[in-house]
Amino acid sequence: MIGIAERGAFLRHRHRLSWAESVPWIAAVAAFFLFPSYETLGAQVLIMVLFALSLDLILGYAGIISLGHAAFFGIGAYTAGILSAQGWGEPISGLVLAAIVAGIAGFISGWAILRTTGLTLLMLTLCFAELLREIANEQEHYTGGDDGLRGIRMDPIFGVFEFDLFGETAYLYCLAVLFIMFVVARAIVHSPFGQSLTGIRENIRRMHAVGAPVHLKLVTIYAISAAMAGVAGALLAQTTEYVGLTVLSFIRSGDVLIVIILGGFGRLYGAFIGAPLYMVLQDQLAKQSPEYWLFGIGLVLVVVVMFAPRGVLGLLEDLGARFRRDSR
């Protein structure tokens, strides 16, 4: 048996910041100064990092496989977009509202579907996103339907920082929001609540047996994850001033799943490796030809699943472990 004190020490140790954790943030700030012409792409990458981070919370920590996480991304994007198109251009309140609406949608849908498992759960997440896409397509009056939502005009952030043409403000805005969301996510996964989620992922029967309110915990993290995905969607709507139906598409749900698999799930920082890797590759390969991109990403998926199921971060960890062993 582990004593209370030891357990506390274990949690504190896991929670402790390591120097390596500053690397992605330094890289993100450095990228701002080093690649000034890529800031628009950079903002998209940061949004993808946040979206993937939200998926990591449910996939990596609670073991929920979703093929429809774009549902919440899309809800956030349309909430922020419609709010602005209707004349309310203040960005921060748009983000907050997007998080609330997406979170509520996550809570309600999660309550209904998280009683199921396996293929059924997969199908329900997928169908929920597809259903929303049909609704968005049909409600042209609000969403612009197939043509997309136009007429989004954002006010300056805090009334000071205007969104510029080169995407500088957008990049820093996304980075700041991502940082805040990351701190929240990190606190969640290292909390007792986060630990109990891992317990559910590893052995759900046992968690039932010890009397943990499994369903409520799953629904809670699902709603939190949905809110975070909603913020990512809202950022996209605000920085590009456009929302298209693709925010709700199956492809987007697939993209974010691939990103987190590439980077490595269940470790928060996987999103920071997967998203730039995926999007820079996509940017470069799709320029050559879309077939190269599709073949490449398909092949990468197969290879990763076969030989590196824990993603790039997993590979790095293995390398690190070997290095330490050798030097001992």
Partner: peptide, 30 residues
């Protein structure tokens, strides 16, 4: 290929077969 995945989890199977779908799109386009 497939038989390597029977014993693996659902997530691996889903990702592996989605990878095949992407490759099939590229090959058929070519």
């Amino acid at each position: 290929l497939y038989r390597r995945f029977y014993a693996k989890g659902e997530l691996d199977q889903v990702l592996f077969t989605i990878g095949l779908v992407f490759m099939s799109i590229a090959v058929c386009t070519l």
